[in-house]
């Protein structure tokens, strides 16, 4: 089981969290302008890297807030955990 550091609550067991997949996928600001291939890329295509991965977790059984974790997908070691950056556009 992973030990995940919630930036709001501190270190907790993985079973308190739910996984949200790849972080930093920005919703296109004008979906109508996209081709089907571009929309499919946004909806379905993932980096799925072997190594460092930026991903979203939700502290479902705690503060219920989303945050970002940097984790190695081979060693499973977590190298960083941070609050989501606030941006001006539609990015998460």
């Amino acid at each position: 089981m992973l030990q995940i550091s919630c930036p709001f609550c501190g270190d907790r067991a993985e079973s308190e969290f739910s996984y949200g997949g790849e972080a930093g996928i920005a919703r296109p600001s004008d979906p109508d302008a996209l081709s089907d291939a571009q929309w499919a890329d946004y909806l379905f295509m993932r980096k799925n890297p072997r190594g460092k991965h930026r991903e979203l977790w939700n502290h479902a059984q705690g503060c219920r807030r989303w945050f970002e974790v940097e984790r190695d997908t081979v060693t499973y070691a977590i190298s960083a955990s941070r609050k989501l950056a606030r941006r001006d556009n539609h990015n998460r």
Partner: peptide, 13 residues
């Protein structure tokens, strides 16, 4: 396991 991984091992829970 809920998270992505290439480690060919999973969690006890």
């Amino acid at each position: 396991d809920a998270y992505t991984g290439y480690g060919q091992r999973g969690s006890f829970q």
